[in-house]
């Protein structure tokens, strides 16, 4: 369970819902990737799966992936906390456009 992107915007005038902004939970229509000028890059050889980056990501964009982690670049804002939390030097921040 996780909020996810929808292709159409909601139709908010329905019979079942009040005529206001009450709507289905987890309804996303925009990504956050455009906020970023640096991106975290994982060195899977160095990653020990300690999950510190996963635990401290304010945006929940790092997922457990087997015994490693992966980044959701659609929603990562490039804050860099993950790279600071990694004790194994497995996460590096790189410029978004080189």
């Amino acid at each position: 369970m996780k909020p996810h992107l929808r292709t159409c915007i909601p139709e908010w005038r329905s019979d079942s819902l009040p005529d206001n902004t009450a709507y289905e939970a987890g309804f996303l229509v925009t990504k956050n990737s455009g906020w970023r000028d640096i991106r975290p890059v994982i060195d899977t050889k160095k990653c020990t799966g300690c999950l510190q980056c996963y635990l401290y990501c304010p945006d929940g964009t790092i997922a457990r992936c087997g015994n490693k982690v992966s980044v959701d670049y659609d929603f990562c804002k490039g804050c860099g906390i993950c790279a600071k939390m990694c004790r194994h030097d497995a996460l590096r921040m790189e410029a978004e456009r080189r």
């Binding site: 369970m1 909020p3 908010w12 902004t21 709507y23 939970a25 987890g26 309804f27 996303l28 925009t30």
Partner: peptide, 8 residues
Amino acid sequence: FPQLCFAN
């Protein structure tokens, strides 16, 4: 609205 970021 319509970006609603809580799943609960």
